Simulated assay, not measured.
Amino acid sequence: MLKWDFSEVSPQGDGEEIKRNLYEYLNLRIGAFSDYYRETLSEYPIQVNHQNALASFQSLLNAVRKTGHPLYLLIDEYDNFANELMMGYRHAEEDRYRAILSGEGVMKALFKTVKAAAGGRGLARVFITGVSPVAMSDLTSAYNVAENIYLLHRFNALCGFREDEIAAMASEIGKECKLPRSQVIEALAMMRTFYNGYRFSRRTEERVYNPTLALYFLKAFQRDCDYPDEILDSNLAMDRGKMHYIARLPEGRQLIFDALAEEEPVDVRRLADRFGAEDMRYAPKDTGFVASLLYLFRYLDHGRRHALRQADSYHSQSGYPQTLR
């Protein structure tokens, strides 16, 4: 198992400096991989090329392939560089972004190598996570084998707690603290109000609890046998940079106000799925574009199914209307 987390790579500097930062990071991770699996790789040492991390990765692939074991690659925060573009949105940042993702930029070269490795050269599976599909849109030509799974209903509860799980944990805490059943029910109602409601697929009715917020509440509930003083964890505050970017878009400010008012859902024909650098700068920023960004950043969510059916004038490509709230 090899893991890369691109949030650990500094996006500052020009294209060459970012390339050096990325290569240094990749070589560190490859070195750590070699050390962790040193017994398995004892007969097949990995050669770390300090000038070219892609060559180091090729050496790792060759070594792992000789062991007969499959290699799984996890890439987290893959869109770290794209987020810098959105939050700053200055020409210098756009040029830097283009330098690493356009043409033969370092990120495109890296993902071409990953794609080739997954084509029978020792890499069994690749799992990529990030905040938005911005960078993936610009990487399409280099990595056009990815399958987006974040809207599939089977994964709806993958990253959240279900109601029954929250109820079971709250009940156990109530027993430990010798609290009356009424207080446990009250705690559940409070958590349902503030933490429940995430629905990642329009094909399911099940809503899940935000795990960071739910655990924040439950830890305080268990520790103090009482509710936390602050109902929201400050670690999960809205990203101001992203909100500022969206607010600067033509439809952004009004759409944010409409969403906060919660009087009517936001209806869009379909969720936009391309947010490349060209799209972010030149594509029409209509309600659908802005609402899709808010949805991907989890500021908006799918509405209920009955609301979807009532929005007759808005339909997705598959024929279903989509309502966000």
Rank of each mutant, 00 (worst) to 15 (best):
L2E: 13
D14Y: 01
I18D: 04
Y23D: 06
G31E: 05
I46V: 02
N52S: 05
F57T: 08
L60E: 03
A63Y: 07
I75G: 09
D79Y: 02
L85F: 15
M87Y: 15
A92N: 15
E93H: 15
Y97P: 07
A99S: 11
L101E: 03
E104V: 02
A109V: 14
T113F: 10
A116C: 04
A117G: 04
G120I: 03
R121D: 09
G122R: 05
F127K: 04
T129L: 03
G130H: 03
S141G: 02
N144R: 00
N148C: 05
C159A: 08
C177W: 12
S182Q: 06
R192K: 15
R203H: 13
T204K: 07
E206N: 00
Y209P: 02
P211C: 00
L215K: 08
Q222T: 14
C225A: 05
E230R: 05
L232N: 03
D233F: 04
R240G: 09
K242G: 12
H244K: 12
P250R: 05
L260R: 13
A261K: 02
R274L: 05
D279S: 10
P284V: 09
K285D: 09
K285L: 04
F289P: 01
F297N: 11
H302M: 13
Q310W: 14
A311G: 07
G319E: 02
P321V: 13
